[in-house]
Design a protein around this nucleic acid. Sequence first.
RNA 1: GCCGGCGUAGCUCAAUGGCAGAGCAACGGAUUUGUAAUCCGUAGGUUGGAGGUUCGAGUCCUCUCGCCGGCUCCA
Length: 578
Amino acid sequence: MEKNLEILRHSASHIMASAVKELYPDAKLGIGPAIEDGFYYDFDVEKPFTPEDLKRIEDKMKEFIEKDYPFEKIMMKREEAKKFFSEKNEIYKVEILNEIEDEEVSIYKHNGFYDLCRGPHVSSTGEVKFFKLLDVAGAYWRGDEKNKMLQRIYGTAFFTKEELEEFLKKREEAKKRDHRKLGRELEFFSIHPEEAGPGLIYWHPKGSIVRSIIEDLWKKAHLENGYQLIYTPHIAQEKLYEISGHLKNYSEFMYSRMLIDDVPYRIRPMNCPGHILIYKTKIHSYRELPLRYAELGTVYRYEKSGVLHGLLRVRGFTIDDAHIFVQKENVSEEVIRVLDFSISILKAFGFEDFKLYLATRPEEKFIGEIEDWEKAENALKEAIERAGLDYEIDEGGGAFYGPKIDVKVKDALGRLWQCSTIQFDFNLPERFDVFFINKEGKEERPYLIHRAIFGSIERFFGVLIEHYKGAFPFWLAPVQVRVLNITDDVLDYAKNVYERIKKSGIRVELDSRNITLNKKIRESEMEKIPYTVICGKKEKEKGNVSIREYGRGDRGSISFDEFLKRILQENKNPTLTV
RNA sequence: GCCGGCGUAGCUCAAUGGCAGAGCAACGGAUUUGUAAUCCGUAGGUUGGAGGUUCGAGUCCUCUCGCCGGCUCCA
């Protein structure tokens, strides 16, 4: 974010806090920073704020802005500041002060409102002209669920009215793209929380056809890139997860045991142990490495009810998984290869921008030696750097068995979505005693790379829906062409056109209902079908079809053969760069 | 899981504590139409679920399930 905008928003958060203190004097202050889309301030209040309160606070803010109070910076000795905020009963400010090491701290003041703050601020409240309070939400003090929950008010501020309006418009736009709404309207999928359980996806025919196109492309790309496809079962005896360490380190996400012939089984939360079992069925030579097993593996994980979200966060999902057994000295090279492969596939689906994150060892809940972790983290880092990609460090964000690289894609609205993940693992090979025979004829331990490109098919589909607003490119669209007849007189011709398109392998539908042309067009357009083909008397006479392209309206009349040639050309899958 | 908001027909939404309604969709009929909604009719509901208050509950209270916005977490 631009520095000045950050200052403006931070100032807005102070004005909001002062308004809250005026209206609710007992509210204790938490923190109130500027964030990417605006700002927030946390308050400890007896009663949570209501939307009506928000309006009152906003009005009070406007009043303060009108009065144009100057912001003043006051320097205070830390101990003095502690005393100052203790007397005001601002316990959270005191807590922050206890952790500040500087001898002197700055405090910003306007209209009798004092806040511990590094600053800087705009010179007076009157500079914050275009703002809006957006939402109230609970938020744990310091983001820790063990702490008290405070009430957070979100808002945003801009320098101009136009920018504010554009921001609000973009929010509306995002709502229209919501994959949950589009998923229902376009009959892609449904969720049946009451009857079947929350977080479980039912793929309807329209969604399923898109999924199968995605999966077909994925399979073909993997076979061409040195992977072997496998299938493994969805349940396994508990002892498999004892060996893998999931039971110890991942049980909070695993569903409870079921007994089969008195033997405890679990439904799988990950696919890795199964892949390792296949690897271990024979002795492998270093010549076979890197050995790459890929599976569209469906897993089930317990996710807390409050985090479930459409297709993006679910309880049962299919990972486009692969496990690569690789010699230590080839790890970096293999990671680069995987990164290139991932990005090439994501690009095929129309994503251009990516952001990489290197996630390091978690504070608690990790297995293996710290030294190995550091080595692995360096190997991943080297791979990213050698591939020439920008990245950020996600401190403590690794899986329990190793560090990872996450790839997020940027969608049409500039939002980031987590897709690919490349995870480094030196623990499972140890636990399962995985080895290969090296050049010297000795047993050697390989490293294991877990990786997914889409992440989960469900999530990726959700991201695709939002990216394309449900209007998929021709090759991905569930229905690619809809043929409309204008009257029953030309139904035979329309049927003929439909049959010939269908025979060529294009996904086509015929709308022969006896309703107005306008109505048929409207429906075809609302279903976001790429081509609507209209057959009337004029077309029949010439062997033509009239074409409507989704979102572009009437594109005129061309011969059927020409149209067929065109859509067959357009139907080819995008080519991969790897 | 936590905080707040919300659950009425397939969808979008009405209904002061007093007869559960509309539009779209569905179904039936008329209409044979040239680039985004033809007209008429029919049917559709234990108001998420269970208790309670009341002469009377969609509306008020309690519990519960679920959804939405956040927090925490995450493929």
